[in-house]
Design a protein around this nucleic acid. Sequence first.
DNA 1: GCAAGGTC
Length: 648
Amino acid sequence: MWLIVAEKDKSARRIARILFKDVKVLKKNQVNYYFSPSNKAFVLGLKGHIVEYDFPEELNNWRRTPLEALLKAKFVVKVKEKNVVKTLLELAKDAERVTIATDYDREGEFIGLTAVKLIQKVNPGVKIERVRFSALTPVDVRRAFENPTSLDLNLAKSAEVRHKVDLLWGAILTRLLSLSANRLGRDFLSVGRVQSPTLRLIVEREEQIKSFKSKYYYNAFVKVRGIYAKRKFEKEEEAKAVLESINTLKVLSFKKSVVEEKKPIPFNTTEFLKEASKFMKPDKAMAIAENLYMEGYISYPRTDNTVYPKTLNLKKLVEMFLSSDFKDHAEFVLKHGIEPSRGRKETSDHPPIHPTAVASKDELSKDEWTIYELVVKRFLATLAPKAKWEVKRVEFEQGFKAMGKKLIFAGWRLIYDYSKPEESYIPDFKVGEVLVVEEKKIKKEKTKPPSRYTTGTLIKVMESLGLGTKSTRHEIIKKLYDRKYIYGNPIRPTNLAFAVINALKETAEVVTLPDMTAKLERDMTAIAEGRIDEKDVLKESVVFLSRILKSVDRERLGSIIKEGIEKDREEEMEKNAIGSCPECGGVLLVKRANKRFIGCSNYPKCKFSRPLPQKGRLVTTSKVCEKHGVKILRIVEKDRKWEFCPLC
DNA sequence: GCAAGGTC
């Protein structure tokens, strides 16, 4: 009996179909597996990491466990996927041979090693092999199975150490902050190697915006032949003086050219999430993409690759859409000849995200269709011809310039219509001609602070700093929202976030910097290459953390964070305050529990309350009711809006 | 109840 272990069900099925002709789909403990009677072979897909490290149970109580105890603790292995482990053990018990066919990367090696350790408990002497393939194609898979090797223990250990280091740092600093600020239970304050540097980026951007001093500058415009030419000035007097001195302008140069505009690159996870975040939060977009993948509409959504592999039959995929809602787009692409664009990142694990089947609007939910349509349009756009613009540039004397842009061939823009082409018009000019100035004006402008991150731009920045992976970045961002560290999109940090980052900067600044990830990556490579021992890496963290625990002033830490929490509370109060309570003089607030209502800040001492309508968006206006002296509220519903005094 | 990383 032969057992093959893959990383997930999808690859297990694929491997089974490639290797064997007589594949039967079976189910045990609600877990799929595949059986070939003639080869007496079973193929089982895991669910990624089926176990995880944790601290022993006796250290679970945060209040009662000294943090130093976590440093000395032994890690215990906790089963996360009981049914998968159960099935794995049942199948492994009678195996004579086990082949590990998990993904060909660091985590895959570790997942494989975990499976082996479990298997050896029930079947100690079993023969174990490892196969590696970069793509789930018949050629690659067959070649790998013809040349089995053994597990790369060092590579697996490097991943193992990362799990431990992350848990150690995360748990100790999370507990330290939460205990110091007395925020326990579901209000705990999390800290981590990826989330904290990401949060620091957001906080620092907000600081830049707060401290930004905008400068004025002056755009001078002159109207000639019906259009405005522009020149920028630092000083208003200068702009005025120049404008006063001119009544005609000579054309110094005029250029008309056709410029090609590149088409977008194929979707990898980051690019996809950046675009999808125009419609929804990244974690939701990812969940929907996952669904569409499971239902067979799109390819695997977790990929770094931005280059279509040669094995992908692009033409066939386009032709698939000839009888669909995207018929016109598909015809357009085929008419002009397929010419795929390519991004800078090329990997061999998965192709860029692309459609794999035709869907119609009524078989998908609204959100699913939004994502599916995005993937299809992007896919077709990457194969379509480039867009062409006619660009005119004119330069006058005195440094006045104007530009015109006209889209003369839409190309990919015809398909990928998520941004409007911005056109502007200027007429033709002749070099040397002198034009009468028809109008002059000056516009005062302000320099702008850097803009806030959006979920889309943040994911890109995280990628460029090496923070997180394609599979985790969206979850990290969600975590920051869940912890009430950030809100809105564009993203703003709460006062709590400022406080947490400040507290960490004083106690454990490394954990707020991307360098920590970079260093860990270097250590992992060294472990994988056998240059250092994984125990030394772990020990380094233990030493570092114990030094932090010795020197930390918990009271100070607590007061920094509490201040932030207090500030958030005050701001929240200010936002929801509508006036004073007619019974006790306290502050009347819009409160949101299960229902929204008007309540008093002195609750439970004062029980004054008034109901509010539950439907529609509630806005506090600046108008005040003459009778009650409280703010007028506005309800905005889809088709109507109305205002009222909550006490009238 | 802690992290980040796989996967659903």
